[in-house]
Design a protein around this nucleic acid. Sequence first.
DNA 1: ACCTTTAGTGAGCCACACTCATTAAAAATG
DNA 2: CATTTTTAATGAGTGTGGCTCACTAAAGGT
Lengths: 235, 235
Amino acid sequence: MSVAPEKRSFVRLPREKRMRDIEKAARMVFSQHGFDAAPVNEIAAEAGISEGSIYKFYTNKRDLLHTVLRTWYLGMIDDFKAKLEGIEGTRARIHIVIWQHLKSIKESPDLCRLFYSEVRNAPDYYSTELYDMNREYTRVLMGILAKGMAEGDIRTDTSPALVRDVIFGGIEHHVTAYLMNRGDFDYEVVAQQLSRLVFCGIAADKPEPRQDLDRLIERLEQVTDRLDQKSSEGG
Amino acid sequence: MSVAPEKRSFVRLPREKRMRDIEKAARMVFSQHGFDAAPVNEIAAEAGISEGSIYKFYTNKRDLLHTVLRTWYLGMIDDFKAKLEGIEGTRARIHIVIWQHLKSIKESPDLCRLFYSEVRNAPDYYSTELYDMNREYTRVLMGILAKGMAEGDIRTDTSPALVRDVIFGGIEHHVTAYLMNRGDFDYEVVAQQLSRLVFCGIAADKPEPRQDLDRLIERLEQVTDRLDQKSSEGG
DNA sequence: ACCTTTAGTGAGCCACACTCATTAAAAATG
DNA sequence: CATTTTTAATGAGTGTGGCTCACTAAAGGT
């Protein structure tokens, strides 16, 4: 006997709503498996949709990842600027930047790892919206450094780009174990230590007691004494 | 008419020699394409061997990458320790670490990028030989820092791990553009700037020695020596 | 000359990202 | 309300590339 052809049926949703569903599912699956190991069909299943539909909204798997990370990054930038509002003083502002960055990492380790491992190392990163957003993020710190140099808090021979890289690169390395589920960190403590290291490393006008200089002076005095004596004897 | 079945013929090489050939080819292809985009058949062709043979020597593509990177890393560790031989003084030794690391990056940007993007972010990195080698590499710096703290050059409330991460993380971020073929860097200059930043950031109330002052001191000492000698002879 | 060992082969498997012809649910039209 | 148009949604199918495995032949031992 012939089986009646089952009529497929499905729900049609407005584009925006459906995309939010997919991105929510994608965020889960990417967080759990990482990018490569995340099967698109699992994202589709999680979103209650067929695999093919994903490609109606996103050009490819990577585009979907970027979309997820963009919404996350937007929130981060907002938090970042809000926290900095009204803070005065170069050192305090650098501390906030470090503190807030560490806090964001602590709160979203999975997305953070995806950003570090999948986005930033990609060959086309520089033509990415996420790159622009990252620039906007780090530009805040660059502004603080420029102002600090103009106001005499920071040595004028400092390289702002290097300071930026030391801060964000240092943080990235320091939280790696945490991102890999192999350790933890206290962002209050680390922020304190790092901002001190950085600020002391770039601060202007420091007291200069030099031990070697003291020793030299002492010796010069001794020798001069001898010469002095000699010249008296001879004269 | 039937075609006579062509007899395949090939050359058998000793395991070691063949592996060296494969790794040499792999280094080329990985450097050119990156890991994912590097086709195994291209590596095989470059090595003058069939694709299946690769898997007689390496469990998978990633294992081959790791093997290539291990031999590179071994050389780096040797260079590193050799350069540090006989260097005294906390600051000078930190400077050498930074300088040598930057130099290694400058010399092998492709392998470096592979290490950063493919090895270090992998979930199984911590059970890797490359991880152990990286530990050995960074342990050198940790020793320097410990000694520096014991001898009073470095503040005792410093976190050595954070200093290590600031140095290697800062360097990594700073050379990213270069690794992506989007810029260049002068490792002499960067090493100078970074070692100064780090040392000032962790020094136990010792100021940054000024270069001109150093030169002056040296000269004064030479003159003093001469005068000293003369006065002894005369007396 | 024969046997054993093993480097080497390459057709084929499989997983998975991505495509496209087709279907049906809304929306527009009369 | 009936008909046409639009497009969200489908899922079987394609292509790519890492990897396997049954088989082949070159070297070495006896």
